[in-house]
């Protein structure tokens, strides 16, 4: 299958860990250990929502060497396309899911002498695995974790207990605490790496500030998973398959293609990895690129599209699929 080898799992436990955030423990259906993974990795979770197949990427937050199960945390988003609503409201302990093998697009640079982790809200999840790995290998790190409020933030109490207040700094916007990005990035020893995972505005701000502070690009890392953006429905002609698929308002091209029974390649389903890059053969209209993979020139050329997140507005779109 195009997304990598699938693993059948069962939900062994569901915990509510903060307002709108639940944690799910996944164990292998056959009782065997899961693969070891590297911190920062995610899996694609495939859900069967009353016959409607949903697939979303979630970062693995459990310790990478713990093969007895994987933990993921899911924020219930208000404008959910269905995935987080299904996981929060319909999924029960004991239910079956399918996950991909872990894929890592957000790995720590193992040469780093010190690692600064900047988390915003649910963006904490990949850092939970990273901190477990750093701590085990006795590598220096600091977590700076921004949340809306004490009720909305997940895991902050246990993180302070486990790693100490000297390594875990908390910022609650409800209490007018602001993560001091500029002063933090201004004065760090050579060999430090910074990582950001959070809302887009936070990620943009951290990347811009790091650039202004003179950080080399190779020392600043970010991960953004972009949910497919909703929009007007449109048709996409698949030339190789010889069919036309209708892409619904809340559907991605990739999802529409899969619903038509076509096995298109994908990996992250979040516009980051490049696996679903598809050639555009004809385009009478405007491509709405939402990925972070294609370069600006490639986007402007109109000859490629990442079908997991990008959309189209116009009269005719023909793809090499």
């Amino acid at each position: 299958m195009s997304g990598g080898l699938a693993i059948a799992v069962r939900v062994s436990r569901i915990d509510t860990v903060a307002a709108n955030i639940k944690r799910f423990r996944l164990v292998r259906h056959d009782g065997e250990p899961l693969p070891v993974f590297s911190a920062g990795a995610h899996v694609i979770v495939t859900m069967d929502d009353d016959g409607h197949r949903r697939r979303n990427p979630y970062s693995l937050m459990s310790a990478p060497h713990d093969t007895s199960g994987y933990d993921i945390s899911v924020l219930r988003v208000a404008e959910s396309r269905g995935g987080s609503a299904f996981l929060h409201e319909k999924l029960r302990e004991g239910d079956a899911l399918t996950i991909s093998h872990p894929v890592n697009l957000f790995h720590a640079d193992k040469r780093g002498r010190k690692h600064i982790l900047l988390a915003g809200g649910i963006g904490i999840t990949p850092f939970l695995a990273m901190m477990a790995e750093f701590d085990r290998a006795n590598v220096a790190f600091e977590l700076h974790y921004a949340m809306r409020s004490r009720e909305h933030g997940a895991y902050w109490q246990e993180l302070v207990e486990r790693y100490g207040a000297h390594r875990v700094k908390l910022y609650f916007s409800a209490e007018n605490d602001v993560l001091p990005v500029a002063s933090l990035l201004h004065n760090q020893p050579l060999g430090t790496h910074a990582y950001v995972c959070g809302p887009d505005r936070m990620t943009d701000f951290v990347l811009r500030t790091a650039r202004e502070c003179g950080w080399p690009k190779s020392n600043v890392h970010s991960e953004r998973f972009l949910a497919p953006i909703s929009g007007k429905a449109f048709d996409a002609e698949l030339l190789r398959s010889g069919i036309v698929v209708r892409v619904g308002d809340h559907e991605s091209i990739l999802e529409a293609v899969e619903a038509a029974g076509i096995d298109a390649p994908y990996m992250c389903r979040g516009g980051a990895c490049g696996q679903c890059e598809t050639a555009v053969v004809a385009c009478n209209g405007v491509l709405a690129h939402h990925d972070v993979y294609l370069s600006e020139e490639e986007k402007a050329s109109g000859r490629k599209v990442m079908i997991c997140v990008s959309r189209f507005d116009g009269t005719k779109l023909s793809l090499d699929l």
């Binding site: 990598g4 993974f37 093998h101 872990p102 894929v103």
Partner: peptide
């Protein structure tokens, strides 16, 4: 190769 997957 950058997209090479575990188990494949």
């Amino acid at each position: 190769l950058l997209k090479l997957q575990l188990g494949k």
